[in-house]
Design a protein around this nucleic acid. Structure first.
Lengths: 333, 333
DNA sequence: AATATTTTTGTATGCGATTACAATTCTGTT
DNA sequence: AACAGAATTGTAATCGCATACAAAAATATT
């Protein structure tokens, strides 16, 4: 391994000047700069990042904790994060928790051990207290999820109003019996989308029986199964709002496997607008989240935090949008 | 920050002992071990990974270079990698190249700078010479892609025989005019699948006009567009083999947007068997790759390499499988 | 030409851990 | 009780770089 001292010797300068050539070039004469660069090239010198990190106490890497990298929504957010990370010279360490709380906590050690300078959390299953603690010591930003009452910088959409939009759309199409397939209710996202649904139902003075609101887990299968339960009811819903797209696909396939058609017999709307939503037949009407932009925004915030810059607001709400496609139709009672 | 010397002082031992309690517990008396652990707990001591890494010259992190994390196939492979990485105490640094050669090369610096101990490459766009060079200096394993004539450990499927299987299936269904939507032909995967297609065509003495073989880029859009070209032909194909599932979706949607039906009018088969293939309507007949297992296998190999264990074979071929679903039907000429 | 000032370079320390090697304590044997 | 050998602990060097401070060289000022 070639070290800085090897370069220094061969170039007949001190290690300090070599170091300066690399990090503060304008403090060294052009002449010596050239000489040093020449030697660096000859010896194929690569500074050892570990040594630098130990000295400077920064790693130029950030940790991203994701619930499931396989989920297209999260992978898109991650891509957004990564894209601005590299531009700013940061690398991303990936922590996929598989929705497992323990692994989520385990990854926090990476920060404590100084292997990363900051953290982007795409999930927040862990105790809000321990998140707050981390945020006190290290730059942390939340994306997608948020922590109730916390001052940690957060970028997300307003899931409540998003769900309202979707529900309202169904109501205005004339639907009165609307089923809701929720996400896991131990997370704020699942809770908020449910909240938005209920609020809209209340606002239009509809009454929804409790059997029409069921908790899924954001998987295709849970959407499929819950929709089958709905279909077995004496009075199945005429429309269904699924709290994410994958469950919506499950619902639609459940409906068509019973010989019914979407949107003719039953309308379905999803949430997220993953790429497959426009590919699926019928193309899915859904609430679109700017996943990539949420990632870039989150990373930009984190960089400000890392640079000890001031952050103006704490909550960054991104724009969501109802994307009307082919999975809903008017209901005439 | 609490350092090892802080706990050493408070526990009235030397830093060496503290270090030993942490890494070689059986060389320290139970008594002092307890005392030290007690202090560690009290002070909430976390060893600084950077310092350790500098000393031991290993980082316990590996780099994974992916062409596109957003692609469900790759994200599943990545998940496989990560799952065995964490079990073995490794963390994964993510390099998403966005199919960009430069970024791919850029990520290699991470290894040279000693920020990672090894590398898993899910893409191999870069010059095979520079890959070989890396593999000489560091543990490297290739997954999915491979480098012609290289001795670098590789896990993949046999893309040629996979493509043969798919093509043969169509031939046996009676199809004689089969279109092929290839992947990018600057990569071995694209080339091999094309090869498998041609070989099968030759074996069954079919003649395929060159217009029926078009190069796509693995995206939905390219599948859609190429299929539209096929449909504009005087004699469109009666079956189409797309070199991955996303292009197959594109092809199917192009077909149905012209009022034709899959599989009734035209049969389509894909490649990969991503999750949506079974959700899509019609459910896609495709070649299934064991993505997760390819990831775990690759990481297991890398760990052997990292431990300087001997690796028996260099090429690990995983089993692919034709999954027959609803997108193909018999053709009677 | 002598001095003050600025620019450039060098010396030497420390970042926080691991680990040879040395020193000490403990154990068992006679 | 004296000693050898094993088990335990301590001392201090080291990993490769950055940087505070000191020294030297170059430039400006009188």
């Amino acid at each position: 391994m070639v070290r800085i001292i090897d370069v220094a010797k061969k170039a007949n300068v001190s290690t300090a000047t070599v170091s300066r050539v690399l990090s503060k070039p304008n403090t060294v004469t052009e002449e010596t700069t050239e000489k040093v660069l020449q030697v660096i090239k000859e010896l194929n010198y690569q500074p050892n990042a570990l040594a630098r990190q130990l000295r400077t106490l920064e790693t130029k890497t950030i940790l991203v904790i994701v619930p499931d990298i396989t989920n297209p929504f999260f992978s898109k957010v991650l891509r957004g994060i990564e894209s601005v990370a590299v531009i700013n010279g940061y690398q991303v360490l990936l922590g996929d928790t598989g929705n497992d709380l323990e692994r989520e906590n385990g990854y926090l050690n990476i920060l404590l051990q100084k292997k990363a300078d900051g953290l982007v959390l795409l999930t927040a299953k862990m105790k809000s207290k321990s998140i707050e603690e981390m945020a006190l010591k290290y730059p942390v930003v939340l994306a997608c999820e948020y922590v109730e009452g916390s001052a940690i910088p957060t970028v997300s959409i307003n899931n409540i109003s998003g769900a309202q939009k979707a529900t309202e759309y169904l109501v205005k199409l004339g639907h009165k019996r609307i089923g809701f397939i929720s996400g896991p209710l131990d997370g704020v996202i699942g809770q908020d989308r449910l909240k938005g649904f209920y609020q809209t139902i209340a606002r239009y003075n509809l009454r929804i029986e409790s059997v029409l609101v069921q908790e899924g887990n954001f998987s295709y299968e849970s959407g499929f199964n819950i929709m089958n339960q709905f279909l077995d009811l004496n009075h199945p819903p005429t429309a269904v709002f699924a709290a994410n797209d994958e469950m919506a696909f499950g619902a639609i396939n459940a409906i068509s496997s019973k010989g019914l058609s979407v949107p003719h017999d039953i309308s379905v709307v999803g949430f997220d607008d993953i790429k497959f939503s426009s590919i699926f037949k019928p193309a899915l009407t859904t609430i679109s989240q700017p996943a990539f932009e949420m990632g870039t925004m989150a990373m930009k915030l984190l960089i400000k935090l890392l640079n000890k810059e001031e952050i103006e607001r704490h909550q960054y709400l991104m724009e969501d949008q109802l994307i009307i496609r082919d999975s809903c139709s008017i209901h005439i009672s």
